[in-house]
Computed example of a mutant assay.
Amino acid sequence: MRALASVPAAPTAQQIGRAATLALYDELALSPKPGLVTLTDRGSHADMDAQTFMRSLLALRSYFVRIAELGAAGAPFEALEQCGIAAEARMLAATGGINTHRGAIFMLGLLCAAAGALGQRPTPALIRQTLLARWGVALSARAHRPSTLPGGLAARRFHLRSASAEAALGFPTLFETAEPALRTARARGLCTTAARLDTLFAVMAVLDDSNLAHRGGLEGLRFAQASARGFLAAGGASQGVEAAVAIAAEFVRRHLSPGGAADTLAAACWLERLAS
């Protein structure tokens, strides 16, 4: 009698959370990244470096596990939000008040909760469906709250889709751009660095990144998007990283930093890690 194929077990909260921490390191370690902190470069940030990010990562490890546990327990959105607020306080304590991962606390935290709530082997489609089914109404209500954060204020000023609005829609840039871009790059045989770099630029090309709008206004955001489209049209990372290095230098000159794109790349790396 032919043995039945075993069904892959659902990841534990510990595995979900560990994948999130490692994914944030994946994003930090990628280089060159226009305007963003890497292991050897501050990018456009005078107030933080790789050590700042590592302190933040260590402070957030337990948060991703805890919020996955809350998701598995069927916790309401208010409980997830309070968990995130506490994590942000730990991040700021670890970094001396510097915001390294506020966006990732929000985005990856919600994704970890959704993965925990699944109770089965996660796929990108199932994670997105679960996020919207469990907390979509609450996320829509949150998206209508007036923001007091710099990114939220910039999104409202320039009529952009904010991070909260992205969440209320089930993170379309992650699931419709970043995850497919990373998967396709891997299928083409690109190395890890090239695949992640192309994914970052694919996100930069389409995302209403409020970090860019806050730092450079609408002109800065559109410049970043056009630069990303040009990089990809010229062949992307498969043609080498020289073009990315040149773009990075211009981002630093203009004080631009695509933090929202960085968070989305980290989330795509998390999805890939969960699937492996």
Score class of each variant (00 low, 15 high):
Asp49Cys: 11
Leu274Lys: 11
Gly136Tyr: 03
Gly230Glu: 15
Leu200Thr: 06
His214Cys: 00
Ala125Cys: 07
Arg121Ile: 00
Ala115Val: 15
Ile98Phe: 09
Thr177Lys: 09
Ala75Lys: 04
Ala213Tyr: 01
Ala19Asn: 02
Ala234Ser: 14
Ile105Asn: 02
Gly43Ser: 00
Ala23Phe: 09
Ala143Phe: 04
Gly116Val: 05
Gly84Trp: 13
Gln82Asn: 12
Tyr63Gln: 02
Arg66Asn: 10
Ala143Leu: 07
Val37Thr: 07
Pro34Phe: 02
Ala5Ile: 06
Ala246Gln: 15
Phe64His: 13
Arg42Ser: 11
Leu110Met: 15
Ala262Glu: 02
Glu78Arg: 06
Ala104Gln: 14
Thr21Asn: 11
Ala266His: 12
Ala75Pro: 08
Ala244Lys: 02
Gly74Pro: 12
Leu92Glu: 11
Glu78Lys: 00
Met1Pro: 09
Ala246Pro: 01
Leu212Arg: 01
Ser162Tyr: 05
Ala178Ser: 05
Leu118Cys: 08
Gly119Gln: 07
Tyr25His: 13
Thr264Arg: 01
Ser227Gly: 07
Met107Asp: 12
Leu174Arg: 06
Met204Asn: 02
Leu58Gly: 05
Thr123His: 12
Thr21Met: 03
Leu36Ser: 01
His255Ala: 13
Glu250Ala: 09
Gln15Arg: 10
Thr193Val: 14
Ala104Asn: 03
Ser257Val: 05
Leu131Cys: 10
Glu81Arg: 15
Val206Arg: 14
Met204Asp: 03
